[in-house]
Amino acid sequence: MSRVALVTGGSRGIGRAISLALAQSGHAVAVNYAANAAAAEEVVGLIAAGGGEAVAVGGDVGNRADVDRIFAEVEAALGPVDVLVNNAGITRDGLLLRMGDDDWNDVLTTNLSSVYLCTKTAMRSMVRSKWGRIISVSSVSGIAGNPGQSNYAASKAGIIGFTKSVAKEVGSRGITANVVAPGFISTDMTAALGDAAESAAVTSSAIGRLGWPEEVAAAVDFLASDAASYITGQVLVVDGGLAL
């Protein structure tokens, strides 16, 4: 029986690549999306065309009622979640001196509270089945900091501390919790940062180019596998050597 993976924010960017990679490795995939149903349905269609199983599940993962409904829908369609990928994230960049409270709260809610809500909800069935994988997508911003991203970096650093604590709580039950921290990956989110930021990232990285979403997805797919059973509480940086 194939394992069930839920990918939050799984319809676009890195999340889309993760959904496709997990389907490729045999998971039944629930593709969560916040607003863009068409993008999610396209990913589901691609997975189905490849012979895989997938469903699109809309909802705001920063909202408890939505999270409860998302998990209920996934369980009804595919079964309990075995692999949770906390990927959903937004940016509201700006220097701290000019940052609005909403910019802070929205980013912390969508990027960090969502990880708390989804992980807590997923944990119940994982503890019962004595197997589970929690993989949360952080960012090198959360490790090294980045001007204009104090809210985003705080949320992404928070994910790391959260993950290490959860790893210690549930390790004895066959559940691992890890973080993947991408650097500058070619997505809509990074395209919005502009050419100057992009060329600076290319220059700073050891590999000398932007990363592809598939390169992040490969790390997530590995951590979701049985092969990664002795790895927990770790931060796997996928940034082409940007933060060295």
Binding site: R124, V127, R128, E169, V170, S172, R173
Partner: peptide
């Protein structure tokens, strides 16, 4: 039974 085990029992 460890502390998580007690939580499992409650659930």
């Amino acid at each position: 039974v460890d502390s998580l085990g007690v939580v499992e029992l409650l659930m």
